[in-house]
Design a protein around this nucleic acid. Structure first.
Lengths: 341, 341
DNA sequence: CTGTTAGCGCGTTCAA
DNA sequence: TTGAACGCGCTAACAG
């Protein structure tokens, strides 16, 4: 291993060549007003010395970092890792780098991270922690003109940029799909009531019933905590219903898989059909899976959110004048039938 | 939305208070030689003005970034997203941030990314692209004393820091496990020969046979390109073997799932048992899965690699003297029986 | 206890 | 065609 050197600076090159630092700088940038010979000498020496501009210094004096910060609840969840992949991809194309952090669904950590990201990033992409219910920690950011785009888990505010998936429409489709297949008594294993997504699904269920001119029976919707035990309990509750439930919409794929597994061990005469919300790409490797899933497009959401953020960054001045106009992208969730073989 | 302000600087506070910038700086840092009243005045004004130190400026003048760069092949793969989660976690604890990029298994992009990360990060964590076979692009880094730790996909060099999982030992265990279960003819669907991991598995297979005093039959090991079609072809090859193969070790979980699915549709008298290498956390949701998996501990690998990197960063001087000593952590892969119900 | 000066590496006036 | 000087925001060495 070689002895460690300090990175070459413009100043050193200047001294070695007995010229000024600014000349070196200009030569390296092919500034038109630099003599050919000087330019060549400079470039030669620079490459001999393995000169590389100190990005940090440049960004610092420019007041830009070319970094976008990304704060997500959990990096190891496949939904978010898909999103990250898209974000990195889009950012890379526009020469931005990605500074990544996870809140572990903890507001306190989220606040800390926002704090920490400030002054280190040009803009921020955020998917909120589950229990984030106040949003002051973001205000400072836009006071300093650091644009923020929320995605998927977005705050219920109108004066923010956001990209999210409309669960209601997907749920409407899911229920309609089951009705069309002949099911008349459709259950729903929903999530905890603290989540917006839970409300959206419920709303979708109700609207779908109305749309199809059927009576809405609230007892067909049960909540669960999304754990395996909670799911099994919820399932048993539904199956004990006085009406015969033949199909069930579940909050997500995990819940669906738990429920499917359970229902197949219960010795039922008819195992109900399941529709869920797509969280797991791997569902296609499995044998017993939901007949259809509502796709939430994590990759697309990440992509759109990043594009918006980069757009805001590219047009900061114009945007400043434009205060009051916000991107609020809603991607329609989409029901896809799963390939059962 | 509020009008955009420029972030407050130390200088502004100084001017407003008619004191010098260094006094302000010291007051904010609770420097012992600052009068109580000045300190209080400064802190009061600072908080009134929402002063926050410009991290970028600090890092710049310290010549440190407190950022570690992470370059991985594919962020959306569950193996790597687990690793990232661990990396972020460990880095966060030591007040480092994570700059993330993916090479998409393309050496050219990998080289570009290393270039780009240089001067922006204090250290680098890398899992190599599949086709990376030369390593000059990393040399510059250690010349500039930017420590690099490779993990999981590591270069075949002795003078680098690395963390990896020993596939050989896991494979030995896997084969022994199957032998102990009574299988006598064990096939292997291995990966492409370009991968080190393929050789390791093969070596493990052979050693296990030797260890168990059995003859090694090379025709029981077939390669495949890891696609579904390739896997099915490899499987058919094995099942057509003149000897009756009753158990198969596969290169990874994807291959195993493809093979299991295929073998269950072939109308075999006896479906072989499978052992694979754990890549998918979700395997526990599935019905037909390998009887055992060789765990590669992505989370642990990420954690160890990060710890090493942070250690190198914390002891840069000592390390410099220590040139020639390298961390080469080998985590023993471990066979875990899967919970079949 | 506090102010002055200098410098981190670079780009960019302003002058020559 | 080039150089000198300045500043980005902050810290630290040196003076008082």
């Amino acid at each position: 291993m070689s002895i460690l050197e300090k990175p070459t600076t413009i100043k050193e090159i200047a001294k070695l060549l007995n010229i000024s630092a600014s000349t070196v700088s200009r030569a390296l940038h092919d500034h038109p007003s630099i003599g050919l010979t000087t330019r060549q000498k400079v470039k030669k020496l620079a490459s001999d010395l393995n000169y590389e501009p100190n990005q940090n210094a440049i960004f610092f004096q420019k007041g830009k970092t070319y970094i976008i910060g990304v704060i997500l609840p959990e990096l190891s969840e496949s939904f978010f890792s898909s999103a990250i992949s898209a974000i990195e991809e889009s950012a890379y194309k526009k020469n931005y780098s990605v500074l990544l952090a996870q809140s572990h669904d903890d507001v306190k950590k989220e606040i800390e991270l926002v704090e920490k990201m400030n002054h280190r990033v040009d803009g921020l992409l955020i998917s909120l922690a589950k229990n984030t219910s106040s949003f002051e920690h973001f205000e400072k950011l836009n006071r300093y003109d650091i644009p923020v785009v929320f995605f998927d888990r977005i705050p219920p505010l109108s004066n923010v940029h956001s990209v999210a998936c409309n669960m209601e429409s997907g749920t409407i489709d899911a229920v309609s799909y089951l009705l069309k297949k002949g099911h008349r008594t459709i259950g729903m294993i929903n999530g905890p009531n603290t989540l917006i997504a839970t409300a959206e699904r419920k709303e979708g269920y109700i609207k779908s019933m109305i749309k199809n001119r059927l009576k809405y029976d609230p007892s067909l919707i049960v909540n669960c905590d999304l754990t395996q035990a909670g799911t099994e309990q919820a399932l048993e509750g539904l199956l004990a219903h006085k009406r015969n439930i033949t199909a069930i919409v579940t909050f997500n794929d995990y819940v669906a898989l738990f429920a499917i597994k359970k229902s197949r061990t219960m010795g039922l005469v008819v195992v109900p059909e399941f529709v869920s919300f797509a969280n797991l790409p791997l569902i296609h490797y499995m044998d017993h899976i939901p007949v259809a899933s509502v796709e939430q497009f994590p990759y697309l959401q990440g992509q759109r959110a990043t594009d918006i953020l980069l757009d805001l960054l590219a047009n900061k001045d114009r945007t400043a004048a434009n205060k009051g106009a916000f991107y609020n992208i809603v991607i329609d969730s989409q029901l896809v039938e799963n390939n059962l073989k």
